[in-house]
Computed example of a mutant assay.
Amino acid sequence: MQQTLIDHIGQVAEDVVSLVLRGTGGPLAPWEPGAHVDLALPNWLTRQYSLCGDPADRESYRVAVRYDPLSRGGSEYVHRFLRQGRTLDVSLPRNHFPLLPAPEYLFLAGGIGITPLLPMLRAATGAGVPSTLVYAGQSLATMPFVDELRSSHGERVRIVATRQQGRPDLAALASALAPGARVYCCGPASMLAAAEEVFPADRFHAERFHPKGRVFAPNAPFEAVCARSGQTVQVTPDESLLDALSHAGHPVASGCREGVCGSCEVTVLDGEPEHRDDIGAPTGRMYPCVSRALSPRLVVDL
């Protein structure tokens, strides 16, 4: 964890605040466009937010948080109780949504999904790569960073207020896509589902707020062997591996508990995991908040 100070907090759209977090112990850890961090909130919750500032700025991080009345308490705490001058512990950046090389980019943002795409657009245009951003939201008042985008990127940015203009024509955008161009999309599930229907799968990259609905076989019991301690933990069908480890005295840091943030990653030394995450776990790793085992026994590096 890195200790930071809230240097600035301010409203940037209806129900959206931006936090500038300044490091208190020297330069903050480097990051690349698409990265996110965990914020350890004072109410004992940990939440993930995309970094939306400038990667060249090693003195501070910027995140933006939309208030969600149906959230589990994270966004409500940020909006109601966080103030300038408060210290927050912040994780090292993680990136499951990297900007890959391409001859051209199309960025599609829906609402608060603009946050990981802001630094991507800056990096792409800074490198001289032709890039377009289509940014949709219910109204201009609900869309953070519109003025910043217009002033910095001008005609590269198309702002779509859907209440007045309707939703962007994704099929038309797909038909006009240049050969080899990559599409990066972040927004609500309906936007991602529509985009997946029309853009080439091998050049379409998405980051989700919540996991994609999928069906798995019924949960089966298995045992997890903690290699460093030698303890064997029984995981029942109605319990996640994450919770079973915690109850056995091996707590693993976690955030979303939905398989989309990656904060609970553990190393698998033996056995076959059943990956149920939306990230795509690297070989030899798994996310125990949602993933389970296809083999009767897993050995994890704990």
Rank of each mutant, 00 (worst) to 15 (best):
A64G: 14
A64F: 02
A64T: 06
Y67D: 09
D68E: 15
D68W: 03
D68Y: 08
D68N: 15
L70T: 13
L70N: 15
S71Y: 08
G73E: 11
G73Q: 12
G74L: 10
G74V: 09
G74S: 11
S75F: 04
S75N: 07
E76V: 14
E76N: 05
Y77A: 06
R80Q: 15
R80F: 00
L82M: 10
R83T: 14
G85I: 04
G85L: 02
T87W: 01
T87G: 00
V90S: 03
P93W: 02
R94K: 15
R94Y: 04
N95F: 05
H96Y: 14
F97T: 01
F97R: 03
P98F: 01
L99F: 02
L99P: 00
L100Q: 14
L100Y: 13
L100N: 07
P101C: 12
A102M: 04
L106Q: 06
L106F: 04
L108A: 08
L108H: 08
L108W: 10
A109V: 03
A109F: 03
G110T: 08
G111P: 01
G111D: 05
I112H: 07
G113R: 10
G113L: 09
G113V: 03
G113Y: 03
G113Q: 06
T115H: 04
T115P: 00
P116N: 06
L117H: 03
L117F: 04
L118E: 01
L118A: 12
P119M: 09
P119C: 10
M120T: 09
L121Y: 02
L121N: 04
L121E: 07
R122L: 00
A123F: 05
A124D: 01
A124R: 03
A124I: 02
A124F: 01
T125F: 00
G126D: 11
G126A: 12
G126Y: 12
A127E: 14
A127M: 12
A127N: 12
G128V: 08
V129R: 10
S131P: 01
S131L: 02
L133V: 11
V134E: 09
V134F: 10
Y135D: 02
Y135A: 06
Y135C: 03
A136N: 07
G137H: 07
Q138C: 05
S139G: 14
L140K: 11
A141Q: 14
A141K: 15
A141D: 14
M143L: 13
P144A: 12
P144D: 11
F145L: 13
F145S: 02
V146H: 10
D147N: 12
D147L: 09
D147Y: 02
D147Q: 15
L149N: 04
S151F: 00
S152G: 13
H153Q: 10
H153L: 07
E155Q: 14
R156N: 13
R156T: 12
R156L: 13
R156C: 11
V157Y: 00
V157D: 01
V157F: 00
V157C: 07
V157M: 02
R158P: 03
R158G: 01
V160K: 12
V160N: 09
A161C: 11
R163T: 13
Q165T: 04
G166N: 09
G166L: 11
G166F: 10
P168A: 13
D169P: 00
L170C: 07
L170V: 11
A171W: 02
L173D: 07
L173M: 13
A174F: 03
A174H: 09
S175N: 11
S175W: 08
S175K: 15
S175H: 14
A176F: 05
L177R: 08
A178P: 01
A178N: 03
A178W: 02
P179W: 07
